[in-house]
């Protein structure tokens, strides 16, 4: 039994399904799902395109405990339709965030809901078969994240799945109080393939894996301040990082956004002229920037945690 638990804690987050991640992340047996698969809240649109639905539309939501403390949680299934935001999958996340907002604001008479929401993002963005509904769902999610944060709810994005966090998911991540990323976690707006298709292979060679990781991968995001914590690609890695970042989150107010304005303006003037990621890391003051790629977690975390740009409350 001990061995089982230990093995499970070391299982890859990248390879896991949404439900496996929830099992590995939360305290054992603590999760209660809302609108579970048996309720069959699924997409009313995919059949038009002759595509199979999923009983949960690719998003698992509910509540549980993390290190003994209550959390609300939404997990995207990156293997189903690329984890995309559709009408239903998006609305499930919106509802969860609104419930947290209302409870924290005293609006629905239930103040026992947790003041923390974890978003396990694994998404290429908007589901094109439901493009308008999906885009709007992202807009509603972003608004609901902000409203929840304003009421004192900590909203934390965890990114380390196969579909990464692109398009609307990339914007959603950056709307959260904190972002946890693994080396395998990729965050961006336009995916490398999309840029290559639209702008040509000279602009972005999506087949060049090393290039892709250096641009959108977790290490670059952590170093430039685009993510607040770096997790090992394991259940326990994400669990530990989530517990740590929940300890202190920035409030959502004018002061925070003015600080973010200064941070992003500073980054643009400092790093905007760099040709590649290694060039950026050099400007940031990393002594041997090409070595970043092969650094193990401890060495990398040691460097990232000392870097001014990477550690801030400006989000």
């Amino acid at each position: 039994m001990m061995e089982d638990t230990a093995t499970r804690a070391q299982a890859s987050w990248f390879q896991a399904t949404a439900r496996q991640r929830i099992d590995g992340l939360l305290d054992p047996g603590s999760f209660t799902e809302f609108l579970g698969p048996a309720e069959r809240v699924q997409s009313p649109h995919l059949a038009l395109f002759d595509l199979p639905a999923a009983f949960d539309d690719g998003v698992v939501i509910g509540r549980g405990t993390l290190d003994g403390k209550g959390v609300l949680l939404a997990a995207q299934e990156g293997q189903f339709m690329g984890g995309t935001f559709g009408e239903v999958s998006g609305a499930k996340i919106v509802g969860l965030l609104r419930a947290a907002r209302d409870a924290a604001g005293g609006g629905n008479g239930k103040d026992d809901l947790p003041r923390a929401v974890l978003l396990l993002l694994d998404s290429g963005g908007v589901r094109l078969q439901e493009a308008n509904a999906g885009e709007l769902a992202v807009a509603e999610v972003m608004r609901a994240v902000v409203e929840a944060r304003s009421n004192g709810v900590a909203v934390v994005a965890l990114v380390g799945g196969k579909s990464g966090a692109f398009g609307g998911a990339g914007l959603t991540a950056a709307t959260c109080s904190r972002i946890v990323v693994s080396e395998e976690g990729r965050i961006g707006v336009s995916g490398p393939e999309v840029i290559e298709t639209n702008k040509g292979v000279e602009e972005f060679d999506a087949a060049n894996k090393a290039l892709v990781w250096s641009v959108v991968g977790g290490k670059n995001r952590r170093l430039i301040g685009g993510a607040d914590a770096f997790a090992a690609d394991t259940m326990s890695g994400f669990r530990e990082a989530a517990i740590a970042v929940l300890g202190k989150v920035p409030p959502f107010d004018l002061k925070t956004l003015k600080a973010e304005q200064a941070r992003l303006a500073g980054r643009h003037s400092k790093l905007g002229g760099c040709d590649d990621a290694v060039g950026m890391w050099k400007v940031l003051g990393i002594k041997n920037p090409p070595a970043v790629r092969d650094m193990d977690e401890d060495a990398f975390t040691g460097i990232a945690d000392r870097l001014k740009e990477a550690n801030h409350d400006a989000r």
Binding site: L171, T172, A174, V189, I195, F204, I224, G226, R267, D276
Partner: peptide
């Protein structure tokens, strides 16, 4: 849509 934009974290700017 550009590699450099993604590199410096366009998602954070838009958000």
């Amino acid at each position: 849509m550009a590699r450099r934009e993604e590199m410096i974290g366009l998602n954070e700017y838009l958000a």
